[in-house]
């Protein structure tokens, strides 16, 4: 029984069957990659996991609890964090303030009326945020406006914000999209390091096969809304069905 169990999920947008009977099981403490050509339904599947979309049928269980019908912040409080394809950070705030917010969310829950305390006096929160910035090697950019960070740093910051909450499942949506080779390799190293340091399950959607094969323990190939194969990377590489899905029948 995996930490994330997706069973029989269907999602239809008008005439388009975006997801057709998707079954997926992500085992705890593994890196599970979901790959597939454009339009395969990867992002739709991800959106069903975090509460942005509600599947027409089927069930999504996280750690034995259903996530269906819950709002994104409730699902996050259950232990699922999501990194977006284009970094979603608080651009108007400093890097440090960006880190403080998830720390409060982790400690105080979805809402707390702490209008009279001072952020500077919340020592444990500040230490937590600073420590995480040191971990991802961004402590020297602490007081910078996060909107003025480079794209790679924004991604790094977003990932750090998610990690600070110590999620049990981290969802990554094309974390290296549009990155230079060097940045991609840095991201791979960062993720490997994260994986080494703590118990965390990672589900990753990715186009870059280099990233997928360097990180994944298991790979699910999605094509036209249905899982084609699920296997270890070595077997995926040579699978004729996968080749067909990616390159078309003529190849």
């Amino acid at each position: 029984m995996g930490i994330l169990e997706v069973k029989g999920v269907n999602k239809r947008f008008g005439g388009l069957q975006a997801l057709g009977d998707v079954n997926l099981s992500v085992a705890e403490n593994t890196v599970h990659a979901i790959i597939g050509p454009n339009g395969a339904g990867k992002s739709t599947l991800l959106n069903c996991l975090v509460g942005k979309l509600i599947p027409d049928t089927g069930s999504v269980m996280f750690d034995g609890q259903s996530v269906l019908g819950r709002t994104p912040y409730e699902i996050n409080q259950m232990g699922i964090s999501r990194v977006f394809q284009t970094p979603e950070i608080f651009g108007d705030l400093t890097v440090f303030e960006n880190m403080v917010i998830p720390a409060f969310a982790k400690r105080d829950g979805a809402f707390r009326m702490h209008a009279f305390e001072s952020v500077a006096n919340e020592k444990d929160i500040c230490i937590m945020a600073e420590q995480m910035l040191v971990d991802v090697n961004m402590q020297d950019k602490m007081h910078m406006h996060s909107a003025s960070l480079s794209r790679g740093d924004k991604r790094r910051l977003e990932m750090a914000m998610c990690l600070l909450q110590e999620p049990r499942l981290l969802l990554l949506d094309e974390p290296t999209a549009g990155m230079a080779r060097a940045d991609t390799n840095n991201t791979i190293d960062l993720l490997k390091e994260i994986k080494q340091k703590r118990d965390i399950t990672i589900a990753i959607i990715e186009h870059d096969m280099h990233v997928v094969f360097s990180l994944a323990d298991r790979i699910t190939v999605l094509a036209q809304g249905t899982p084609l194969v699920e296997d270890v990377p070595e077997n995926i590489r040579g699978n004729p069905k996968v080749r067909e899905a990616y390159l078309g029948e003529a190849a």
Partner: peptide
């Protein structure tokens, strides 16, 4: 700044 991120950071 970013309501989407706030939502996905577990805050309502």
């Amino acid at each position: 700044s970013n309501q989407n991120r706030l939502n996905y950071t577990g805050l309502n």
